[in-house]
Design a protein around this nucleic acid. Structure first.
Length: 915
RNA sequence: GCGGAUGUGGCGUAAUUGGUAGCCGUGCCAGACUUAGGAUCUGGUGCCGAAAGGCGUGGGGGUUCGAGUCCCUUCAUCCGCACCA
């Protein structure tokens, strides 16, 4: 009885690992550390589908491999457990989000366990656990108590700023007071001033407000004017809000990208999001006002023909004058009230209005009209631009539309049809800038502007501060209370601030957030903040907690932080590029500044696994009828495609009609079907795997049918890890077949008994083994797991051909396979007579001697076309080889009597005869 | 519009990084075994051609003895950002 019983084997070994704490990690060790982290999941009600484990399997392979090669590996898992869906569910059902979350976590855990991951579950964390969020709140307090000192270029305690104010007051663009002023200020005014510097701060700002969710959202939580969760419309709204000053870290977040090994596309996404642009801030004056603009092209200053201001510009009211006032204000009002979505949808439409005001050109003194234009954003730069239609396409379109002058100041383009935006050419029509290149012109003009005190060189970032308060229940309470209207942080000793029980998960009747419902929501008789932290708070530092998850003195012990330092491999989806992965780097840099952690980047290497998409199945309903037609007839009618459960369809896309009727009787029981060849054929579509499209494939089912080892190997075999690929079970049989073949190498085929030989392997057998050791080791180092699986298959095929069942070959192979298919490896390792499990067995050592060849079968090509092969010793002299080739009968045939021009011999590769 | 990626048999993919294109797997064809089973095993399978041979890595051009790989150009698909001055 020795067929490959994957169900029994997998169950037994999973139990063994759990019982023996096989994967428990020592916090401190003499071994070198290796930290492999998966982005922890949000435990949704839908459970895991086959797409989730893709990255987990890959990181598990690396973890297991690193253990075999002697590293102390930290490979933990946990749950990002606060968030909107559980709360939405609570609103609908009244069920406490904590209960729903616990149930979901339980299910996730069961699913994960079935796949045989080597997580150290003793380090599991949940962001909604008070022992965890105590430290999320603690970090918030540190942010609140810190400011970003531009001189030292790092975060410092707010007291260092207070000292500066006490000693020398303050002199900046927006703020000006003496040290005497400061000492005389009331506590409230001092607090308001400090809030302008704190890294966690309260401010009145335009925010993304989602009425449907009843909360504000951060920029990365809004996609195309809709909320990322739920897809509800989002409005702009002026509100007093907690925010984090991530913008202070813009430059370091940008330059830090250069020293981490993340994918280029992901780094580029972050660079775009940070959006650095270097240029110049510059003031234009009129008799009664001044307007500050930001430009990256001060070299085109002589090409300015109008100024454009945003509809939200603060000086708008002042600028709208004479006969233009009413129409201009009316336009601004309309433009402002359009939602983000509408505004984006109308990008192509050119709208604007003249204010009636003018400013003077700083160099020519020409009168320059001021227009309101909705292509100018209130939230970027100064909300005003100097328009140079000749060299900016948006200004060009606007000028053409409103028939404003266009003045060319950079040569090299043709501005009769479109603007010339390129930064190549010489400056013309520009007084002191004439003849300079664009690059020199920028430098020269900034110098001139600075010397005339009209402005200064300046760098702008698109990155906005992150709105941090949420008008929701299921999140970390913000540990702040209000004393006489002044926000103050909790004492650290009083943390955690526990999320209170409330009767209803909805805003109060007066529109306050749900926490306002909590009984006695006060701290030392002062009211506590009622908004909670966003979903990304807990995930911004979780990698540190795994290092020492139950520490009561700090986020983790000093030793643990020093030892584990940072993540060596971080695995997760690219959808977090501008959200989690940015906040995560921001918090790391902040904690580094405070001297709490030793590294200012959280993850040295990051890999984005591709998404596994689902194939969904569509049948076609003829509009306004209950008639469904087969794919071939679809175009005869006006039809609407309907997604049906993929379980109702076989591999030839034929729908099981009885099952369909049973699936949704009300819809299909009495329906009419137009078939082709007696079958209803459905159409297919590749897309996201989701409940909504009825195309979710559950890994549990795959484990049942084929086994976890097969699932693991198959997901890796599907293609390069980073690529997106649709799930299909075509080919999964091949992987199971491979594991059976592997199993059979260890078993006497006739009687199916375990049977391996102690004979010394042949050279050929050793060669197969060492070729495989080399390939698998290199592949894991390169994260090329698909080719590893292929290499295993080649190896087994070759050993099978040689009927090799020698222990000296097979036992090392078991170790090689163990990171990929750990259950079968454990079982065979045990059958081989080993007492200890395979998980920490030493990785086989590659010996290149077994691959040394002394001859090679050279392809002989003529003008690059391979014609035949000839065998030569590898140490043969080139001359000798050449004459041997020339004397060969076949060579003579291809030379057709001609004399070869030359013969190129590449040792061990190829011979090319040039004719 | 800007940026990032990708394009190879019917399909998923591979190619020691400039050196025999198509490994491995699926699918398909043929065969063996079999109480004819969606099991297992063997052989074949890029395209055209009876064969010799020719053609083949999205298209066009180039560099090279030699290009899937390097350069130029063009097309297509996917992803991210987007009126960011």
């Amino acid at each position: 009885m020795a067929t490959y019983e994957f169900r029994r084997i997998e169950k037994e070994w999973q139990a063994y690992w759990a019982k023996h704490n096989t994967f428990k990690t020592e916090t401190i060790s003499v071994k070198e550390k290796f930290y492999v982290l998966d982005m922890f999941p949000y435990p949704s009600g839908a459970g895991l589908h086959v797409g989730h484990p893709l990255g987990y399997i890959a990181s598990d392979i690396v973890s297991r491999y690193k253990r075999h090669t002697g590293f102390n590996v930290l490979h933990p898992m946990g749950y990002d457990a606060f968030g909107l869906p559980a709360e939405q569910y609570a609103i609908q059902t009244g069920q406490h989000p904590a209960l729903t979350t616990d149930e979901n976590i339980k299910r996730y855990r069961e699913q994960l366990d079935r796949i045989g991951f080597s997580y150290d579950w003793s380090r599991e964390i949940k962001t909604c656990d008070p022992n965890y969020y105590k430290w999320t709140q603690w970090i918030f307090i540190q942010l609140f108590n810190s400011w970003y000192n531009p001189k030292t270029n790092k975060a410092e305690n707010i007291q260092t700023l207070v000292s500066i104010f006490e000693q020398s007051g303050c002199e900046t663009e927006d703020l000006s007071f003496t040290k005497e002023d400061w000492l005389g200020f009331s506590d409230k005014i001092k607090s308001d001033i400090l809030l302008k510097y704190r890294l966690a701060f309260l401010s009145e700002a335009m925010v993304n407000w989602c009425p449907e969710l009843g909360t504000v959202l951060a920029n990365d939580e809004v996609k195309d004017g809709l909320s990322e969760r739920g897809g509800f419309p989002v409005e702009r709204k002026l509100m007093t809000q907690w925010s984090l000053r991530i913008s202070a870290y813009a430059e370091r977040l940008l330059t830090g990208l250069d020293k981490i090994d993340w994918s280029e596309s992901l780094k580029e996404a972050q660079r775009n999001w940070i959006g650095k642009s270097e240029g110049c801030s510059l003031k234009f004056f009129s008799e009664n006002t001044e307007i500050e603009v930001f430009t990256t092209r001060p070299d085109t200053i002589f090409g300015v023909t109008y100024l454009a201001i945003a509809p939200e510009h603060p000086s708008l009211d002042l600028l709208c004058v004479n006969g233009y006032r009413e129409a201009a204000l009316d336009y601004a009002e309309k433009a402002k009230n359009r939602s983000e979505r509408e505004r984006q949808a109308e990008v192509k439409n050119i709208t604007g209005a003249f204010t009636g005001s003018f400013v003077k050109h700083p160099f020519t003194n020409e009168e320059i009209p001021i227009w309101i234009a909705d292509y100018v954003l209130g939230s970027y730069g100064t909300g005003a631009v100097m328009a140079v239609p000749a060299h900016d396409s948006r200004d060009y379109a606007f000028a053409k539309h409103f028939k404003l002058p266009i003045k060319e100041v950079v040569s090299g383009g043709d501005i009769s049809e479109s603007s010339y935006d390129a930064k190549i050419g010489d400056i013309i029509n520009s007084d002191f800038l004439n003849g300079l290149s664009v690059k020199d012109g920028i430098k020269r003009s900034i110098k001139e502007i600075e010397s005339l005190k009209l402005g200064f060189g300046k760098t702008n970032y698109r990155l906005r501060d992150a709105v941090f308060g949420r008008q929701r229940y299921w999140g970390e309470p913000i540990p702040v209370f209000y004393e006489d209207g002044i926000p103050k942080a909790f004492a650290e000793n009083d943390l955690p601030l526990i999320l209170p029980e409330i009767d209803k998960y909805l805003p109060t009747e007066s529109g306050e957030p749900p926490l306002a419902r909590a009984a006695n929501w006060t701290y030392k008789n002062h009211p506590i903040e009622t908004t909670t932290m966003p979903g990304w708070a807990g995930s911004s530092w979780y990698f540190l907690r795994y290092m020492d998850p139950s520490n009561k003195e700090g986020i983790a012990s000093k030793q643990a932080l020093e030892y584990w330092k940072d993540i060596d491999l971080y695995m997760g989806g690219s959808e977090h590029a501008t959200g989690h992965l940015l906040y995560f780097r921001f918090w790391t840099k902040f904690l580094y500044d405070l001297g709490i952690i030793p590294s200012d980047e959280p993850a040295k290497k990051l890999i984005n696994q591709g998404m596994i998409q689902g194939m969904s199945c569509l049948i076609y309903r003829v509009n306004q009828t209950s008639k469904f037609v087969s794919l071939a007839h679809k175009n005869k009618y006006e039809t609407t495609p309907i997604h049906i459960d993929i379980k109702l369809v076989n591999s030839s896309n034929e729908v099981d009609l009885d099952a369909l009727k049973a699936w949704r009787p009300s819809e299909f029981e009495n329906a009419e079907f137009e078939l082709e060849n007696g079958k209803l054929i459905c159409g297919t579509e590749v897309g996201k795997m989701s409940k909504r499209w009825h195309n979710v494939v559950n890994p549990d089912d795959v484990c049942n049918d084929y086994g976890a080892d097969t699932l693991r190997l198959y997901e890796m075999f599907l293609g390069p890890l980073q690529d997106a690929k649709p799930w299909s079970t075509q080919g999964i049989e091949g992987v199971l077949r491979f594991l059976r073949k592997f199993w059979r190498l260890f078993h006497n085929n006739a009687e199916e008994n375990f049977n391996i030989s102690l004979e010394t392997p042949t050279k050929a057998e050793f060669k197969i083994l060492h070729k495989t050791i080399k390939k698998i080791s290199e592949d894991i180092d390169n994260f090329s797991f698909n080719t590893s699986v292929s290499a295993f298959m080649v190896c087994v095929n070759e050993l099978q051909d040689l009927k090799c069942n020698k222990r000296e070959i097979l036992e090392p192979l078991v170790i090689l396979l163990s990171p990929f298919a750990p259950h079968i490896a454990e079982e065979l390792w045990l059958l081989c007579g080993n007492k200890e499990g395979v998980s920490y067995a030493n990785w086989p050592k590659f010996n290149p001697e077994f691959l040394v060849e002394n001859e090679f079968n050279y392809p002989i090509s003529f003008n690059g076309k391979v014609r035949f092969n000839l065998n030569f010793a590898l140490d043969i002299d080139n001359k000798e080889m050449e004459s041997s080739i020339l004397n060969n009968e076949q060579t003579k045939k291809y030379l057709e009597g001609k004399e070869p021009k030359k013969i190129i011999i590449v040792k061990g590769k190829i011979v090319n005869v040039v004719m």
